[in-house]
């Protein structure tokens, strides 16, 4: 079933060999095969409220406050070591934090009573180094968590996985193992793996920075399409082209602080802080 708000778009580029169907050129619809159920109808999807975090004496996050509303695409950027990866990992409690509060769809992530596996299964995450499970075939990578976490029957989980694999243009590779795919292909599988859980929000932690330059496009295409279909996304990336194209808001971080949190046009047009200006000029100069 396809019920996305916007029609799927054709990819910007498709550098893959002919055996890979390009993302978005499949027979049917969209990456979001089902609208995820959202419980909180009002309020932001992700609310980050005054979060601080320390590694021992070293403070990595300082009073971070921001939010992501339903259907919004927020890009987080900043120099390396600015805490942006740490912040996004706090959202699904992969990293603990000592002060402040984060809620996802109304659920507090740092609450001891929160069922974290359940919460995390509704928050898709894509990692810098893909983190596919090397000993499992692509099919099993896609179906493992569906079966073990959501309790879906094997056949259903595999069918769902295969459908998403087709959507990211890699159906022909279902039987292969991660080590047999290129970086770009692996990252597209990783996106499909996260989508297979029907997430209400997707987190991307530098999804293209470990890729060879010629593979960045194919991954960004999938992400652009996902954004246009209305997925709520929080994306840590240096890809300003992606930000310009689909982001609603851009957050700029430096030294563990949120320095700038602005609408896209505002951020690219006239960043208020000097640090953001320097960062932008440096990153856009090449």
């Amino acid at each position: 079933m396809t019920s996305s708000a916007m029609p799927p778009v054709s990819p910007v580029s498709e550098p893959q060999a002919a055996t890979d169907a390009a993302p978005g050129t499949g027979p049917v619809g969209t990456l979001l095969t089902e609208r995820p159920p959202v419980t909180a109808t009002t309020g932001p999807m992700i609310a980050i409220d005054d979060v601080s975090k320390w590694y021992g004496d070293f403070q990595v996050l300082t009073n971070c406050t921001t939010s992501v509303t339903k259907g919004e695409v927020v890009v987080v950027c900043g120099p390396s070591g600015s805490g942006k990866s740490t912040l996004i990992k706090c959202v699904n409690a992969l990293e603990p934090f000592q002060k402040g509060q984060i809620t996802v769809d109304g659920t507090r992530v740092a609450d001891k009573k929160t069922n974290l596996p359940k919460l995390r299964s509704r928050v898709g995450m894509v990692f810098q180094h893909f983190e596919l499970f090397p000993h499992l075939s692509i099919t099993d990578n896609l179906s493992l968590a569906q079966r073990k976490v959501l309790g879906r029957p094997k056949a259903e989980a595999e069918a769902k996985g295969l459908a998403l694999l087709e959507r990211v243009g890699l159906k022909a590779h279902a039987h292969k193992f991660p080590g047999q795919l290129s970086g770009g292909q692996q990252q597209r599988v990783a996106i499909a793996r996260a989508l297979a859980m029907n997430p209400i929000v997707m987190l991307f932690d530098e999804p293209t920075s470990a890729l060879d330059p010629e593979m960045v496009g194919e991954v960004l295409d999938v992400m652009v399409e996902l954004a246009r279909e209305g997925m709520t996304m929080m994306v840590v990336t240096h890809e300003m082209g992606f930000a310009r194209k689909v982001a609603n808001r851009v957050i700029f971080m430096d030294k563990g602080e949120i320095v700038e949190d602005a609408q896209k046009e505002e951020f690219f047009g006239s960043p208020r802080s000097e640090r953001a200006q320097t960062f932008l000029s440096r990153i856009l100069s090449h």
Binding site: N92, L94, R120, M125, F127, E131, L132, L144
Partner: peptide, 15 residues
């Protein structure tokens, strides 16, 4: 093993 493997499992909701 890469640290991300544990994170990826955890992020998918595996206990």
């Amino acid at each position: 093993l890469p640290r991300g493997q544990r994170m990826a499992g955890t992020a998918l909701g595996l206990t």
